[in-house]
Amino acid sequence: MNPQTALLIFGMGMLLVMFLFYPEKGIYYRWKKAILSTERVLIEDALKHLYDCEYRKVNCTLQSIAGNLEISSDKAAKLVQRLESLRLITSENSNLFLTPDGRSYALRVIRVHRLWEKFLADETSVPEIDWHTQAELKEHKLTPAQANALAAKIGNPVIDPHGDPIPTSEGNLPEHVGVLLTTLKTNDVAIITHIEDEPKTIYSQIIALGLHPGMQIRVIENSQTRIVFDAEGDEKILAPSFAANITVELIRDEEEIQKEFNTLSNLKPGEKAEVIRISNALRGQQRRRLMDLGVVPGTIISAEMVNPSGDLIAYRIKDAVIALRKNQTDHIFVKNIEDND
């Protein structure tokens, strides 16, 4: 075989492999996605949608199911029939309602979804934007027993990483609390409690701003066209339609308000600081490891030395010298203190 032919065949082979296995666009991924929309998946997604309507106190119809599940009205009609025959829903003047059985089924699915999001957030490095998509797939696969085992493994969490409560195994949920970010007035201080993860386009822009549940914000301006607020030391601007996807809880107690947002990454070698808290942006293993090392409120940390490239700093924490990267120290709030000795 002459070299030209050999190289040509090789090139074509590489293209074929790309065509088959290219992430998210390749044949293999599409095929994997396609085999997932079985009847069970449709039933569970419809129940979830109905539960969501109930929680938000709006009416659900056949059309809204078709829209939410991205299926034709014909298919949606068949699905509704099937749900009714399973006694999971009832209908009244074209409005659809969950039966008690349907509600508990929906809550079981939601429980798995939120547990899985919590697992992804704490125990893996899957990016925030992919949590919801992956949980959408996983929620149809775990049995209640597996869900309980998962919950036990990650410390029986009560809140998912978006700030939504996770239904208990008995199907209980607490009362909905908090207000929308859009309702705050200038100088109100609040904690973000929930960021809605749908639609994905809006969610991805909100997380791109670095906003996350547990973050403290102070409103600077709230008008018809925009809402400007300080989020832990950085000024952010959102359109009201975006801000409506964020739920917050007001802080009324002056003492609970954090005023300084200096981070450990600003500490120069030779300076000392006291830890105020670790931002909620550091989760799961990252957060636990830092706390294991003694990075807790009140700990005194001094910056000791910088590596030759100047981007890794070693700190003295509780008499041990430990190097931490900037993507960690950016999320550790400290207040500088004078060196007394």
């Binding site: 125990e123 490095s125 293993q285």
Partner: peptide, 17 residues
């Protein structure tokens, strides 16, 4: 960036005396 993207990742490097 690919197969290990989702594995948990932390960092700390102790410089013992």
């Amino acid at each position: 960036k690919t197969v290990l993207k989702g594995e948990a990742s932390t960092f700390n490097l102790e410089l013992p005396p």
